[in-house]
Design a binder for these strands. Structure first.
Lengths: 363, 363
DNA sequence: TTGAAAGCGCTAACAG
DNA sequence: CTGTTAGCGCTTTCAA
């Protein structure tokens, strides 16, 4: 093979020996300079840097990885959706990964993908990564099953965001497992407004995120000794929220609904409104995520803002720490901030003496 | 260094020679099997595969890349936002990249990032990629400037989505440059409804996407010999749409607005509604993107759906073709489908009994 | 503070 | 059909 083949360049890419020759030093010295190793005189460092610049030298990452056994990259497994939550998380992860000097490799797991998380993780391992982030995995691996091809031998540290780990690895960290608390916050808000109970429009139960929110909601109701009404299920989408809303609208007892995400909340509100149930006068609705349009829909949506950036940042800091200090103690997780954003979609329940239809809104 | 160091495994990772030994063949034969090269008897192939399975063998990608000069990965430069457009595009790209057998590396350019696209591309080149996708770049490089550190020497094929190329490379492909046509479609729709002219709520002009939409709108108006009212600018966000809406609401001549994305359209509608201008009775609004909630906001939004998946798929197919056949002719681009989704936010203008035209003193 | 030598694990020719 | 021989461009010893 010709030097530089595959790079498509007209001239071969310069290597560290080329830089060394130009700078009049050994190849090893060039290596030292580029790795910020000590014991290089300022004078030599300058010469090397100049030569590199002049030649347009760029370190060959494959050679580095091969020689050092470290790829300096982190792989992330995400769902292949543009849903606000997963997408925000991915962006947060990218930012931190880059800040910590690692490169990012991304593999999606589509819903219904037969290989699922295991396949995605395997693919990342094939590519070569020093650590793996699994963002919001959903159920697809049977629990308790340990067949080697189902849950691949992961020999790098893993950070799992928003779920218990679907893989076994020498070091497993978790982050962002605060959905339950957030769901409590949302539910408590509704209860504090005077609602007798709160209905829940849940996400798909294969998602831990959905289950956690449901759990938080149910636990809050239990704690307050309230009825736990039947759960309505959606698929995160506005259409599914709309469908749920039509059903919920038929039940006059429904005065407060906690939706597991904003998209569903928006669909829900539309259905409620079309059915003649005003929001928030007749029914209060709380969403989850605080997507960008939530403040501007009609009515502006009360919701819980997820601390995506904080979760990504904190989790990755810990992951990188484990990667670079395999023996050291893990950094302790910290609790991310949780914000309940109260807007106009929640209000006290309609007074019970007056039928809703006779109430008048003054504008 | 110890074998397998950096992988953190308790035992060293098996190499192809190990597999070869177990299978009783040469190392090269193992390589043949794993590369699906011809001239390996079924019998030998089986033995190799069995041995590999037994050992838990995984090819070392760094060594492969070093020896072959190909990294088998594609890098993508995206904006670091969870905006629906960029995020959808990224997901579409991931899917296709994986389908074509490449790995994906991702680098974001944050707005205000000093290094910008050039820095991101450089980082990808450092990491080692066989091709680069630049998704919706925004202006940050001075045009016409050719300093080496400003626009790095890109020696791999580049696919630019939704913009002219901000870099020079041996092969530059473009895709998704249909925003102008889509903007025309939106504007024509409004004109066909009977509106005298159409106002435009534009995106930030550093984005090509925003400029293209503006151009399409302006050209359509010109073609029909209509007034081109002053452009209102937003920043893609719902709040900015809201702010624009307050201004637009004061002008009774405004009967139709084409917003450069759905988020702004939603903010705009809210402002219009609050100001007592009904949508669509008094003012029609068309958005752009068809984000998931658009069908469920109030009123459901008429919008233009961007063919993200089609654009990603088509563009990448061409990019991969160039990577693998540097000498061959480029595959021809094809036109992605454009869908105007007509919902309830557009309608004919209010009847012209009030002499709005008399008030127009400046054009 | 610097350099020389020896691989890292694989693919690319070229023989058989 | 299969094996041999060289590297790919670095990092890592170890020596100076």
């Amino acid at each position: 093979m010709t030097r530089g083949a595959g790079r498509g360049g007209s001239s071969a890419a310069p290597r560290s020996v080329d830089v060394a020759r130009v700078a009049g030093v050994s190849q090893k010295t060039v290596s030292r300079v580029f790795n910020d190793e000590p014991y290089v005189s300022a004078e030599v460092r300058r010469r090397v840097l100049d030569a590199a610049e002049q030649l347009g030298y760029r370190r060959n990452n494959a050679a580095r990885a091969l020689a050092s056994g470290r790829t300096r990259s982190i792989g992330v497994v995400t769902l292949g959706t543009a849903l606000y939550g997963p997408a925000s998380l991915l962006m947060g992860v990218e930012r931190v990964v880059r800040d910590t000097g690692y490169a990012l490799r991304v593999v999606n797991t589509m819903e219904g993908d037969p290989a699922g998380v295991a396949g995605a993780v395997g693919s990342l391992l094939d590519q070569g990564v020093d650590g793996i982030v699994i963002s919001e995995p959903i159920d697809e691996i049977d629990e308790g099953r340990a067949e080697p091809d189902a849950s691949p031998r992961v020999d790098v540290p893993v950070l799992v965001i928003g779920a218990p780990s679907p893989v076994t690895a020498p070091a497993v960290l978790t982050a962002g497992d605060c959905a339950e608390v957030m769901a409590r916050t949302a539910t408590e808000h509704l209860l504090a407004l005077g609602h007798r109970t709160v209905h829940h429009l849940a996400g798909p139960q294969r998602w831990y995120a959905a289950r956690d929110r449901l759990e938080g909601w149910r636990a809050t109701l239990d704690d307050h000794g309230r009825d736990v009404p039947p759960v309505v299920h959606g698929d995160w989408s506005a259409p599914s929220g709309y469908a749920a809303g039509r059903r919920l609208a038929e039940d006059p007892d429904v005065t407060a609904v906690f939706a597991a995400n904003d998209d569903m909340a928006i669909g829900l509100i539309r259905a409620l409104t079309e059915a003649g149930r005003r929001v928030p006068e007749d029914v209060s609705v709380v969403g989850f995520d605080d997507i960008p349009v939530s403040a501007y829909v009609n009515p502006p949506l009360t919701t819980v803002r997820q601390p995506f950036d904080a979760v990504a940042q904190e989790g990755l800091k810990r992951l990188v720490h484990v990667i670079e200090n395999p023996e050291a103690d893990h950094l302790p997780p910290s609790d991310p901030p949780i914000d309940l954003i109260v807007r106009a979609s929640t209000a006290p329940p309609p007074s019970r003496t007056t039928p809703a239809r006779e109430r008048r809104t003054t504008a």
